[in-house]
Design a protein around this nucleic acid. Structure first.
Length: 403
DNA sequence: TACTTATGGTGCCCCACCCTAAGTAG
């Protein structure tokens, strides 16, 4: 789930490994990754460091075991697309969709740090820098993030609905589909209100942020925790831009600070469960959804607001419509079929063949389901291959057992 | 088996496309 918080957690994950691990040799690219560049780097020993800005992650390779003057370095900027992530695994278990691999040296079991991306929407640039058309990070550059938004409210993107403006990385670098839903829900803003209207009410100076930093200052450590919490939650309420800072940071703090972003499939499972429990709006029961002008699903509660697409429909409505259309087509086909002359020898052969095919198909499906039901406990290799939502659902339903 | 959906972004003109895998309907 790569939005700002996930990218940041990936960088932290890389840095934890990078602190104690040395890498060496060539950086290997997968054969199918034809749209991404090769990384021309081949040192006997090198170190790896990472940093992020919004939805971008920069990996820096540094020649040698330790820092020295004039050392050779190279920066690789990653954008994760819909399914990118970093994994650290034994070389022999290298994931199927690993597209860029950094190999360790001096480890008992040879390990590989790899960029995994099954949909291949992710991209990297060698020697690249932060995207020119991407704004400051709302989590780590909050003051300039706020300024960048409020100083540019005359720009065209703010003429759009707030839910669509929130996905514009020039102003909201790191905000993605689930974060926009959670942010708007928390501040009670309608998703299809005009962005400019909503944001022009905000002041350049954030009282909430000021209070936050003031109370986090060591000089004020004598202030009682209870007093702080009261002031934060009741006296000064965070506004929409504050929430662009607060909400992603909450995600980072889940599961003890993103511990789940590691190689253990079970930990990954727990992290996802906690994340699901944290969501208040996105993909939650009782919430509404609509398809926005960019064909992205926005989740919300209450009135959508005036700028909702004229032809807008929820995902379920679209599905129902399609189903009705299919049903209508089917009844027309049935009507046509009712005119079929079953006495005609050629037609009879066709109908009988279709019926036989249908029985064979059903039988195959049933035996497939039967074998699924009988194989309750999977071997460790198979369990290892099932991660995330799929494994979560199968564990919950009792289809598989935790070994 | 066919279709739909998904946490993103680009290039061209606002929608199609780049991709894979899981879930569902028929």
């Amino acid at each position: 789930m790569p939005e700002g918080p996930e990218i940041y957690l990936a960088s932290r994950f890389i840095n934890v490994i990078g602190r104690t691990t040395h890498f060496g040799g060539r950086v290997v690219k997968s054969a199918v990754s034809t749209k991404n560049p090769d990384v021309e780097w081949n040192h006997e020993v090198y170190r790896v460091r990472a940093q992020t800005r919004g939805k971008e992650l920069m990996v820096t390779l540094l020649e040698g075991k330790e820092e020295k003057k004039g050392e050779e370095t190279v920066d690789i900027v990653f954008r994760f697309g819909m399914s990118g992530s970093f994994k650290y695994t034994p070389v022999q278990d290298c994931p199927k969709h690993a597209h860029l691999m950094f190999f360790t040296i001096n480890e008992k079991v040879p390990m590989v740090l790899c960029f995994v991306d099954y949909r291949r929407f992710g991209r990297w640039e060698v020697g690249g820098s932060w995207g020119q058309d991407r704004g400051p990070d709302p989590m780590w550059e909050y003051t300039s993030f706020r300024e960048n938004v409020l100083k540019n409210l005359d720009a065209a993107p703010f003429k759009k609905p707030i839910c669509e403006a929130l996905l514009n990385q020039k102003y909201f670098n790191g905000i993605g589909n689930y974060l926009r839903a959670e942010i708007l829900y928390r501040c009670g803003v309608r998703p299809f209100d005009e962005a400019r209207e909503v944001l022009s009410e905000l002041k350049p100076f954030s009282k909430w942020f000021d209070l936050q930093t003031k109370y986090d200052d060591k000089q004020n450590h004598d202030v009682e925790q209870e007093d702080r919490d009261l002031k934060k939650s009741y006296i000064v309420k965070p506004d929409l831009l504050d929430l662009c800072h607060i909400v992603p940071k909450e995600v980072i703090s889940l599961n003890g600070g993103g511990k789940g972003y590691n190689v253990d499939p079970d930990a990954d499972e727990d992290e996802y469960a906690e994340f699901r429990a944290w969501l208040q709006c996105y993909s939650q029961d009782g919430m509404k959804n609509l398809v926005d002008h960019n064909k992205r699903t926005i989740w919300f509660s209450g009135d959508p607001g005036p700028l909702k697409p004229k032809t807008s429909e929820s995902r379920s409505q679209a599905k129902r419509k399609k189903w009705q259309k299919t049903k209508k087509n089917k009844s027309e086909t049935d009507e046509q079929n009712s005119d079929v002359d079953v006495e005609d020898p050629e037609t009879r052969i066709k109908l009988e063949t279709n019926a036989k095919k249908s029985v064979r198909r059903r039988s195959r499906t049933e035996s497939k389901h039967q074998s699924k039901k009988t194989s309750k406990v999977l071997d460790p290799k198979e369990v290892g291959a099932i991660t995330g939502r799929r494994r979560s659902a199968r564990l919950a339903s009792g289809d598989i057992k935790r070994l």
